[in-house]
Design a protein around this nucleic acid. Structure first.
Lengths: 336, 336
DNA sequence: TTGAAAGCGCTAACAG
DNA sequence: CTGTTAGCGCTTTCAA
């Protein structure tokens, strides 16, 4: 059993069964139009009957493509896997890829220049990559982007004209969130921001600041929550420790908001009565939080699908949009 | 750029450069011993100089193997990605695979009998699989296991003599945890268990019950927390709602324990003063919880490595142990 | 519209 | 120990 070949039927057998040549079978499999209806029909029947599935290695070899794309995850896997937002993005990527001929390989990238990453990439193990969560300090992303076509989930730290990106308008979304808080009567709003090394973190902070400024308000506090649960909790503790007064906290991710919630509860503060809490993402963390989070929804699954679709288009020679901006939406629940 | 071939050098060029035949190069690449020191040396130099990396599709085609293994994730991705325990397992799997010739593909499996999963598996897209988080109701696992060699992370629901599994002694670990709680003076212990459809959930519950029985104690309550954060919180609420008295709660995972912690705090109960809380896993959730969780450590990264190692051995014709039981360890922090 | 033929880059007998 | 010889299963000119 171990590793041996399942005697799959080949294109040759399909051809024989359909009474045509290999070439013709190949043509119908690959959707060429130059096939007579009769042949088409015969081949389809043969494929059906024999349950033919093309051998991917052979195709790959002949076409000089790997038919695989990588989902690039930073070596610090907790950063990625810890956030339910990404679970949903991955589902979307997978869903779209499933309808394509590409498989999704998991690629945990490290910044160690000594690792075999580059040789892996250039050995043609991958036709393209989707890079989702990266910091300014991650140098591996450049190595990857220079080796294969890349689609970015969220605008990259170093933007270049060759980039393809799927994103939301983070600044606008943060503005909407902040305006909601102000509309609700909050005046001393603290922010638990994402790291300054990540575009999403920066853009949301910018949106927040803009609205506050326009309203003639000053941030009650701003702390980096690292986009993690623990980081959000720590940030909340730091804000509490400063003794600053605040009637709301806006966290750049639901995960951080949930971390903050725990600290707030431990400090005896009521949400939303004493302090309103606003999240971002509308990931499953929003509804697993207590109380449920008011948040800005990102269409995570659709974002994943869009990333995959963009990459597939790119690899198949079509010309996808360089930038796909997905809509966000305010979701009001209990926390604010 | 899109999808085109990077003109990689081939085995032929290496052979020419080294002054030997393709076969000899192939032999050294594949570690055959039957090569003269001189040839070995020459080939190695040529490989180095030319920066040769074998084409994986060609190898795959010739060897009739895909050189890819799948990490099987249940369609409900949140179940998997939401738990930091798995982030660590995946890292371990990846780390081990990196030293092999296999790539890791992500395979989101569904129970939909109509999907193309089976044809995917039998089209030889994968040489083997690692299945990590599955319920009794997941039927896809059987389809996978009957198509390719499988290594189970945690004993499978339906055990068969052909299985290879990497696990911890869940019952023993739960016993240790429970004994610790009793030793600490707790007498009314509630449990937030994993689902009855998952072996790990069942085994831990069994361990808990055994110790209680031996001590002449009865469980204060038992609720299913679904191995999720939200499920843990809900379970805690249910326990609170019954009005049962308890001085400790033992959760089958850190994630559930953290969910419970939030509810406890909201209810005004002090941990560990009013109630001791014990987790399981020692994942990052243990230290992102407030207070930090006392828990049973599982060597998650090593478990991942062991799973991958077992699968690689299997695929390469070696005979790995059918069962690898990894050690657990009590980690005392603040919560109990 | 179709088939023949020539590979894609590598492995694996089989001789020698 | 090493080279020769066949493929692995599919795509893709090139003629017909």
């Amino acid at each position: 059993m171990s590793g041996d070949l399942r005697a799959n039927i080949t294109i040759e057998e399909v051809a024989a069964s359909a009474g045509v040549s290999r070439s013709t079978v190949s043509r119908v499999v690959n959707g060429s139009t130059a096939v007579s209806p009769a042949a088409l029909e015969a081949v389809h029947r043969a494929i059906q009957e024999l349950n033919y599935v093309p051998n991917r290695a052979a195709r790959s070899l002949a076409r000089r493509r790997t038919l695989a794309v990588a989902l690039v995850v930073p070596e610090d896997t907790g950063r990625f896997f810890g956030d339910p937002f990404f679970a949903s993005v991955v589902s979307g990527v997978h869903a779209r890829l499933r309808r394509s001929e590409y498989v999704l390989t998991l690629f945990i990238a490290s910044d160690d220049p000594g690792d075999k990453m580059t040789s892996y990439l250039s050995s043609g193990s991958i036709d393209g990559a989707i890079i989702v969560s990266h910091h300014a300090s991650d140098t591996f992303v450049d190595r990857i982007a220079s080796a294969v076509p890349v689609v970015w989930g969220g605008r990259p730290v170093h933007e270049s004209s060759r980039d393809y990106v799927v994103d939301v308008d983070n600044a606008a979304a943060a503005r909407t969130a902040t305006e909601y808080l102000i509309g609700r009567g909050c005046r001393r709003i603290a922010m638990i921001a994402g790291p300054a090394s990540m575009p999403a973190g920066v853009d949301r902070l910018t949106g927040f600041r803009t609205v506050l400024e326009d309203a003639g308000l000053a941030p009650a506090a701003i702390e980096d929550g690292l986009f993690t649960h623990a980081g959000g909790a720590d940030a909340m503790r730091r804000i509490l420790a400063t003794g600053a007064e605040f009637d709301a906290v806006f966290a750049s991710s639901d995960l951080m908001a949930r971390g903050a919630l725990g600290v707030l509860a431990a400090a005896g503060l009521r949400v939303p009565d004493d302090v309103a809490v606003m999240g971002f993402d509308d990931s499953s963390a929003a509804t697993s939080a207590e109380p449920h989070l008011t948040t800005m929804r990102q269409p995570s699954f659709a974002q994943g699908e869009a990333m995959a679709a963009t990459l597939v288009d790119l690899l198949e020679g079509r010309s996808p949009a360089r930038s796909t901006i997905m809509p966000t939406e305010l979701v009001v629940r209990e926390s604010a």
